[in-house]
């Protein structure tokens, strides 16, 4: 469960350019949810996602992931938290270009110290689930955008995190690939029982979500 209480985040605080990006956000996201954060550009979707993912510090309030308070953690502890509990899917895929698909998918597992056999089995499992089982030896540069994003999802899922945060995952995909990706992520949510939270303005993505969190000017309006 993710609990946010009175979360505030500023950029350029105490300067003429100050932006109050998140305003007193109170939010509870239950385990296993499949939700989307939506809203107009600049409303704070990515900022909220980054705060939940312990990528960015907040100025006040509290964020708890499965009871662990993350807002007071230092960078090392935040990195450990991200590694062990959170999977990320970025808009620009961000695969490691010098590693092949198999190594990219198993990357987080390697970081976490899983055994080679466990990594091999899990990589094969998620690759099959995401229909990239025949691409395991390919390099990222030889894949289409849709395939790269599926590899990024597989990488996020492989180590069985509690939570996957996906920032505009379909922004660089055509509609066919977007639908395909969303179907797969929904299946992962159901099969793996992983909490998945997107940020998106894509109507199709919003329609697929079981919970919609609408932000306007840094405030949750729905």
């Amino acid at each position: 469960m993710i609990e946010l209480a009175k979360v505030n985040k500023y950029f350029f605080k105490d300067t003429a350019r100050e932006v109050h990006a998140l305003r007193d956000i109170d939010l509870v996201i239950d385990s296993g949810e499949y939700g989307v954060i939506t809203g107009p550009s600049g409303c704070g979707k990515t900022t909220l996602l980054n705060a939940i993912g312990a990528l960015d510090a907040i100025d006040s309030g509290s964020i708890r992931i499965d009871g662990t308070e993350t807002s007071g953690l230092d960078e090392t502890a935040r990195a450990k938290l991200r590694l062990e509990r959170i999977g990320f899917v970025f808009q620009a895929y961000n695969l490691v270009p010098v590693l092949n698909v198999r190594e990219n998918i198993g990357f987080i597992m390697k970081l976490r110290g899983f055994s080679p056999d466990a990594i091999e089995a899990r990589v094969a499992e998620v690759a099959k689930m995401l229909e990239i089982g025949d691409k395991l030896d390919a390099m990222p540069t030889n894949l289409s955008g849709g395939q790269q994003q599926r590899v990024a999802v597989a990488r996020a899922v492989a180590a069985k995190p509690k939570l996957i945060l996906a920032d505009e995952p379909t922004a660089n995909l055509d509609s066919k690939n977007s639908e395909h990706l969303m179907a797969m992520m929904k299946q992962l949510n159901e099969v793996e029982k992983i909490t998945i939270l997107f940020s998106s303005h894509d109507d199709y993505v919003v329609d697929q979500a079981r919970r919609i969190i609408k932000l306007v000017d840094g405030t949750v309006v729905r």
Partner: peptide, 16 residues
Amino acid sequence: TREFGILIALGTSQKQ
């Protein structure tokens, strides 16, 4: 820089 930033975001330690 971007690649390193992503690696850090994914949880790669400074030591690695």
